[in-house]
Amino acid sequence: MTTLSGEASINFDSYWQDTLDELTALPPAPEVQAIPLRSTDFATAYGVSLTSIGPYRLYAYLSIPRGEGPFPARYYLPRYGSVTDLVPQGTSNSQRREHVTFAICVRGQRLADQPYAAAFPGLLTDGIDDPMGYVYRGIVADCVRGVEYLASRPEVDGARIAAIGNDLAYTTAALCAQVTHLVCTPALLYDTANLARRTSAYPLEEITDYLRLHPEREDAVRHTLSHFDLRRFASRVNATTLLMAGADGSALDAAALAPLIQAMPGEVEVHKAEHSGYKDGRHSEEWLSRRFGMAEASLPAHWRG
């Protein structure tokens, strides 16, 4: 039983252990298909299908450098939206020369939208009245399935597997010991119900919309969200971490994230956002390349010099 200030206790550990047990009971049954259109003279791209809890069939993009491995791996967790890219928009495709990259489409996203096609807006509140029925339980499990598969690949250096993304990168690092490095920008799953009250921007506005229409369900919503609050996952994150905090004064700045940072047992560097995709992106690329022992960072041309 764990508690957060002002919230009722929940069986957090058993909730996630049961979820992981459910996942373990299902074979991943991978199918791997080359994608010549996205392959280059330095990397081969594949589409990978995997089974997660439900059971539900997922899709992922895998890219493997040509030449001798093992290679460090970048596991890209999905942002909030229907599209997962082979590598994130705006990052250099040259990262595929020296890294295995893996990007997963979780349930509801394009390429993993049969039979469940998520709505945006809509995903964040789908099943939110009930921890067992909340769609994010499956999504977190989907992300775990992905790293299990990635770590099983012989081309991957098991000492250098980075989870990169928003909240789902964090939960994945917490639930999977295979993740050695974490680059995380918390966005949605940190004190979510209260965070939603401080903004009118989507996707958090989905929570406000839902509670405006169903005010009597607020306790149930808070109860469900408690199972997904990053603060509850923090003590499990042992990966070497770059935490991308919001700029000072923003809802998720370093001060707001202090409880999260203090609860993490592993090494954590905090970077305060500079309101610049270039500066923040370059910082995370250089941080990861240093931690992976790479000769130089994989920077797009406009980020160099």
């Binding site: 259109l37 996205r38 890219d85 082979l86 590598v87 928009q89 705006g90 990052t91 250099s92 495709n93 040259s94 797009p300 041309a301 406009h302």
Partner: peptide
């Protein structure tokens, strides 16, 4: 000018 997606889709093609 760039090797990033989405324009990389054209280079792939």
């Amino acid at each position: 000018l760039t090797d990033a997606y989405p324009y990389q889709e054209i280079a792939d093609y």
